[in-house]
Amino acid sequence: MRQKGIPGSGLIGGVSLSSFLQMLEQERKSCTLVVSSGGRQGSFYFDDGILVDAQFGNEVGQDAAYKILLWDNPALSVTHSEDRMRRIHLPLAHILLDSAKQKDEKDPESNESPEPESASESFLDDSAEPEHNDPARRRFIQAISSIAGIKHYFLLNRQGKMITQSSRKLKIGDFIAYCIVSGIQMRKVLDVKGPSRIQLVLENDETILIVPGAGMIIGLLIDEFTSVNEISDKLGNIITSR
């Protein structure tokens, strides 16, 4: 993992971004690769050698990956791994190939990202996410996965049993169910209806947003930079369009 660098730059001599990404995959690394170029910064997130997500500004997943891959003279830096929602389901080689093709086809000066034509197809691939057999649920997960401020989702049935979650580390299904139970107890005391929404602000300023829906209980972990009201509005739109 330790590489000799170019003195004074922190770059790896003679290794391109795509080669370094492949190396992280081959060595089954769990880490974050931070890429900087021309004042921009983006990140690739690896879990055990699998590229699970990428982020550039408000863009996440494959869209962000394609954009970053187009940058010239990127500087690379590796940091600790993050427990990220899996937003990328295509193999790294496929993404690199797509990116190379797009780079060849487009104006080399252009910074437009290629159309992620295979993104939705790959998401709907049951072999990648076998638990998402319900088409409506798959569409719902796809919609919330595209929102950059949502770090993780937790979907529970009305009985409080976990249906699916994006985090590999956080086991908070029972806690989310308990929040609903607690809300119901408070509802009885206050003689009101609801709760329609529960927000738990954590010490690190992330927020757990819990929304009991008609078909399931939705738990979202929202990052510290994003407005919960904004996410709640977007969630409302997604739910009503289902």
């Binding site: 809300g183 408070m186 509802r187 206050l190 009101v192 209806k193 609801g194 709760p195 329609s196 929404r197 529960i198 927000q199 738990l200 602000v201 954590l202 010490e203 300023d205």
Partner: peptide, 8 residues
Amino acid sequence: IKSAQFRF
């Protein structure tokens, strides 16, 4: 938890 908010 820093704060917990329930909307009824």
